[in-house]
Computed example of a mutant assay.
Amino acid sequence: MTSSGTVSAAGTRISRHDDVLVAVISGELDMTSVDGIAATLFDELGTGPGGMVVDLSVSFLGSSGLSMLLELYRRARRAEIGFALVAVEAAAVRPLTASALAHVLPVTGSVDEALALVRQNRD
């Protein structure tokens, strides 16, 4: 929720870089927005892309968002689809670090780094 009391819902913008899907999540990724974002990302993962990069350009990342990212990573690994996160904003870096998920999930500092990691891991 913003300081004015209005809800800032998360949104997802999807693009492709060759066969790698890049999803940019913006806004607040919390229990009120995670279901819609998860459905979109799980559906996209189901299409069998060559890899998936999730750019966390969020203003808030709650525990439900962290759980969704962990499940997305698990599904990608099970399907042998390369996966990486981009986390630059403090709103994404802090919860990933505090939860120790930054040591579990492949986290990078840019989309270019994430694309290189995804491509390297599948070769």
Results as ranks from 00 to 15, higher is better:
Gly82Pro: 14
Arg16Trp: 13
Gly65Pro: 11
Gly62Met: 03
Gly65Tyr: 05
Pro106Thr: 09
Leu72Asn: 12
Val111His: 10
Ala23Gly: 12
Val104Thr: 13
Ser67Ala: 13
Ala92Ser: 14
Val107Asn: 14
Asp43Phe: 05
Glu28Cys: 10
Gly50Asn: 06
Ala10Lys: 11
Gly27Phe: 07
Met52Lys: 04
Leu41Asp: 11
Ser33Pro: 06
Ser64Trp: 03
Ile14Pro: 04
Ala87Asn: 12
Ala102Ile: 13
Val53Asn: 04
Gly65Ile: 07
Ser64Leu: 07
Leu105Gly: 10
Ile14Lys: 11
Ala90Val: 05
Asp55Gln: 06
Tyr73Met: 04
Leu101Tyr: 09
Gly11Ile: 03
Gly50Thr: 08
Ala114Asp: 06
Gly50Pro: 11
Ala10Tyr: 08
Glu71Ser: 12
Leu105Asp: 09
Ser110Thr: 05
Phe42Pro: 07
Ala23Asp: 10
Ala114Leu: 09
Ile25Cys: 03
Thr47Gly: 03
Asp55Gly: 06
Gly62Glu: 06
Ala79Cys: 09
Tyr73Gly: 01
Phe42Ile: 05
Gly82Leu: 10
Ser57Thr: 00
Gly109Ile: 01
Ala116Cys: 05
Val54Arg: 09
Leu41Val: 07
Phe60Asn: 08
Glu89Met: 14
Asp19Met: 05
Tyr73Phe: 14
Ala114His: 07
Arg74Tyr: 12
Glu71Asp: 12
Arg94Ala: 11
Ser33Tyr: 07
Ser59Thr: 13
Glu113Tyr: 00
Val22Glu: 01
Ser67Trp: 07
Ser33Trp: 06
Glu89Trp: 05
Ile37Ser: 12
Glu71Tyr: 01
Gly109Trp: 01
Ala98Trp: 02
Leu21Ile: 05
His103Tyr: 11
Thr40Glu: 12
Gly51Tyr: 08
Ala79Lys: 15
Gly50Trp: 06
Asp55Ile: 01
Ala79Leu: 15
Met52Gln: 06
Ile37Tyr: 02
Glu28Ser: 12
Ala102Tyr: 08
His17Pro: 04
Ala79Tyr: 13
Ala38Val: 02
Pro49Gln: 08
Asp55Lys: 11
Ala23Thr: 06
His17Thr: 10
Leu21Arg: 14
Thr47Met: 00
Val22Asp: 03
Val93Cys: 12
Ser110Pro: 03
Ser26Cys: 00
Asp19Gly: 08
Ala76Ile: 10
Asp30Lys: 12
Gly48Asn: 07
Thr40Trp: 00
Asp35Glu: 15
Leu69Pro: 09
